[in-house]
Design a protein around this nucleic acid. Sequence first.
RNA 1: GGGCAAUUAGCUCAGCUGGUUAGAGCGCUGCAUUCACAUUGCAGAGGUCGCAGGUUCGAUUCCUGCAUUGCCCACCA
Length: 868
Amino acid sequence: MKELPKAYEPQNYEDQIYRSWEESGYFNPDKLPGKRAKAFSIALPPPNVTGKLHLGHASMLSYQDIMIRYHRLKGDKTLWLPGMDHAAIATQNVVEKELKKQGQTRHDLGREKFLAQVNQFAEDSKVIIRNQLKKMGSSLDWSRERFTLDENLSLAVRTAFTKMYDDGLIYRGERVVNWCTRCQSTLADDEVEYKEEKAPFYYFKYGPVVIGTARPETKFSDKTIIVHPKDKRYKDLVGQEFAVEWINGPVKAQVIADPVAEMELGTGAMTITPAHSFLDFELAQKYRLPLEKIIDQNGNLTQLAGEFAGQNALQARAGIVKKLQQKGLVEKIDEEYVHNLSVCYRCGTPIEPLPSKQWFVAVNKKIPGRGKTLKQLAIEAVKKGGIKIIPDRFNKTYFQWMNNLHDWCVSRQIWYGHRIPVWYNQKIKKTKNQENKAEIYVGLEAPKGEEWKQDEDTLDTWFSSGLWTFSTLGWPASASASAGKPAKTGDLKQFHPTSVLETMYDILFFWVARMIIMSCYFMKEIPFKTVYLHAMVKDKEGRKMSKSLGNGIDPLAMINKFGADALRLSMIIGATPGTDLRLYEEKIAGYRNFVNKLWNISRYILNQKSKTKNKLARRSLGVGGTLADRWILSELDKIIAATTKNIEEFKFSAAGEELYEFTWNKLADWYLEIAKIEENKEEILLAILEKLLILWHPFCPFVTEAIWREMGKKTLLMVQSWPTAKKHKERGVEKDFKLIQEIITAIRNSRSERKVNPKDTLDCSITTANKAVRANLHLIEYLAKVKFGQNISGHKIHLSKADLAIALPLNNNVAAGNEADIANLKNYIKSQEQKLANQQFLSKAPSAVVKAEQEKLLQAKERLGKLK
RNA sequence: GGGCAAUUAGCUCAGCUGGUUAGAGCGCUGCAUUCACAUUGCAGAGGUCGCAGGUUCGAUUCCUGCAUUGCCCACCA
């Protein structure tokens, strides 16, 4: 066997190993070896085709690959389905930004040319992203890769839309929506972000009352004053109508009493602007007030603004206030007012709420034949439908959000995305305020005839990604429509519901909730059984990584520098679900060191094998052997059981941590050292290594596969069998071995304190009746660098747990540290004695606890006696 | 305004259903270097577990309040 390099160089292995995995076909569940009865599936949350991957993706990929590889090793029919999201607004924005640099807009190109350009950009992004997914080691089934704009997924979208429309769950309506004047599109409620801002707050005289507002520019045609019914100040005004001198002359105003007006707020009286405020819109509906548009889709003032018409609303503000001042209608201006400005989550432009005719999904309407609303379906799915959310507390967040859910605006005025499958008949004359049924066609394909023109709008990107778990598996083709639960075939039957949905907590609402709604409605089953929400990756100071801060870490750079395995480990170990993770280079470097340690452990073991190839020990595993052998096998069993349990319970951090501890602190630090003096360990070492590599494989697939190959194995590590714990009872082994470890550590400690050169061998004497110790003196001699045999008087070491005494030829001066130890012990003994003298404790505490405390006291006393 | 989380060693974090002289990694200190690995080994120092009450024989762990930080939701009267 050729000599392995001293250090593991990931760059020399990773790409090649990934290729061999791919070529094996094992990423595809249909090609996995052996009988695999149980299915395990995860749909990859599709990355946006907006460019490249960041650490958030890297983190998600690590978690999912762990689960996928674990289940594949366990013998499940395992599918991890890759794909990407067209991410409508986000992607269109990127391309529009590029155009802007050339001084162009999408309108200069026209719909067709513009879309061609976006599609090209998306295709380019896909190539980059695919490569990055592979760099992370993701064992994705590329033969099943999907894209939200694929033929079948588009069919799924049209089918979904049509069915919802037929069920009366999709309607078109004129409502106040969130409008981004830059994107020129509507936004869903949850696509709006809030930014705290200091802005002047104005108090205006409006007829008999004073009203407060932060947005004078919307107030031109305010005609309705709302006061609280119980407000005595305005009691007499309620129901009255009168003329009021206002911005552009007198207006006729009326006063309505409604409890939404809060008496304590401002002056207690407000005027309403139905077209540009959600709250006011609702009031206007309630009292049947007219909807007058003051601001248009470009953010400019309309004709209703009179002399201000055509001006940008925000810029016109100063002029409007000035005019009111001249008219003596300004009571005061509060410059210190702080409020939340709503902005577009994509581009940061302030949102204009304005009335617009849009398509909505009705979440509070009963579904025909099912007697429940979409909202109720989605709530039930988590409450009693078998969806488990980890961490637990997000259940509450989920319900809170679901309960407050309003109808979902699904139409977007952008070009990139799924065109709304609605056609309008141009020949039928439109009746003014009424929709003529014959005028609209909703269906999978365009109706025949030139008079039919398709809706210009596209669908919210989350409408298509909401279908992700089943559209990617072949729906609607592989599900026959029926009154009951749809009959599934093929992949859909095998892999839906998917096993786990793993993603970051910030898209619980955007995406997870919508998948639940869509799946419960279309598939009549949950989309996934478990939702595992991982944390956000932050920088060392706990700040979000962002381009503007320049504190981002590029996963690819980290992979180049430390290897994909190190990056994966650094994001898994030490992370708690739902609690943000701070990541920095030193951390990744630390796991690079570990990967190298694993490499060298293997290097040592493989070297042993080649040295003694022809005289392998006959001893079979688990029976007989030295104390150290039995100890390490018992520890191995324990770590197999623990790792299995941890992964099954989604405790990935704990799984990694415990494996790390076993590998470094038990196997490398103790057993491998012992292997240097106890002979004939090749067989047992190899057996341990094989199992260890399988256990580590889900976490760090590259290095484990690389070592596996160096072992001369013919089949890939990724399809071996997950080990099971044997549970042989090794009572006493652990205790005995621990005692020997303690003796060794105590001697090393004494040597170190007295600055004995580690090279020097010290004479040493030991008296003990302990059989295990007597049988393993060679370990102590070797690992503590001592030689037994002579009678030594001098420095004595005592251990409380065993009846034994060790003497070293060192001066016996009790160092200062020892005095502190004695003082500590004395304190401890005192507190134990007090506890055990306490009648309450003795009578109320469980007897096992009392016993344990008594034992601790005895041990402490013994130790003290020997220290003195 | 409503809600959720966090607060443990210099730093990043574990610590499950109350009983540990409170743990890990990094960093720090001392010693070692042709021995699988300096991306190393051995040994060590370092914490009154945010504050104040309460429950309990016993609280880092449970409860209440407070403080600080972060996040989510609502809201431009």
